[in-house]
């Protein structure tokens, strides 16, 4: 009997104190994905990466807004969103107390505004994303003019870029043809000159 009591005292209590004391979790515990909307550029990388479609984005071009939303009830805590986030805006925290009484409390949303294209003015990408990309490109630009050019490139929608490219290439083609025609006639003249 005494031996048993001794053994019990030696072993101590195995049960955690959890609901009465905070629970210690390990360092890289994958808990609730914490989204800092201030750092988010609404690039949709997490939306694409999310295997359970817990993170979703809806673009409303009429209202000029993009709504980012996460449903914690569908999240499988894989951390792919954190892995794909270019700005580190989403990070899996140590918070695991997610139980709720109503399903609506499981969703979290963030609304971002869309930026209009610098060329045609139609909304095409979140304003924060365009701004971030322009600043990132401007960081490695050699001159202020190049930075401005890169900013314009970032702020132009793909359709306008394509139209501009087509114009540019068409212009190049005409110039080359004209060049080619010119040189050919020159060549012919030269040939005529040299032939006896």
């Amino acid at each position: 009997m005494l031996k048993l009591l001794k053994e019990i005292l030696r072993t101590g209590e195995a049960t955690v104190k959890y609901p009465f004391a905070p629970m210690e979790v390990c360092k890289d515990f994958r808990g609730k994905p914490e989204h800092r909307a201030e750092d988010c550029i609404a690039c949709a990388a997490c939306t694409v990466a999310c295997p359970a479609n817990a993170i979703q984005m809806e673009t409303d071009t009429a209202a000029g807004s993009r709504t980012w939303s996460i449903n914690y009830g569908r999240c499988v805590f894989c951390g792919r969103c954190e892995e794909s986030c270019p700005t580190g805006a989403i990070r899996l925290s140590a918070d695991f107390e997610l139980a709720v009484g109503s399903k609506a409390d499981l969703t979290r949303k963030a609304v971002f505004t869309l930026a209009g294209c610098a060329c045609c003015g139609k909304p095409f990408a979140p304003a924060k994303e365009v701004d971030y990309v322009a600043r990132l490109l401007g960081q490695s630009a050699r001159s202020a003019e190049e930075a401005e050019r890169l900013r314009l490139t970032a702020a132009t929608c793909p359709a306008c870029k394509r139209a501009q490219d087509v114009q540019q290439i068409a212009g190049m083609g005409i110039a080359r043809q004209m060049d080619a025609g010119h040189s050919e006639s020159e060549h012919a003249v030269k040939e005529r000159e040299t032939t006896p």
């Binding site: 609730k32 909307a37 914690y72 107390e97 997610l98 139980a99 709720v100 609506a104 409390d105 499981l106 969703t107 979290r108 949303k109 963030a110 609304v111 971002f112 505004t113 304003a127 924060k128």
Partner: peptide, 8 residues
């Protein structure tokens, strides 16, 4: 947990 909406 509470439902939250952040507006830019």
């Amino acid at each position: 947990l509470k439902a939250e909406t952040h507006v830019e």
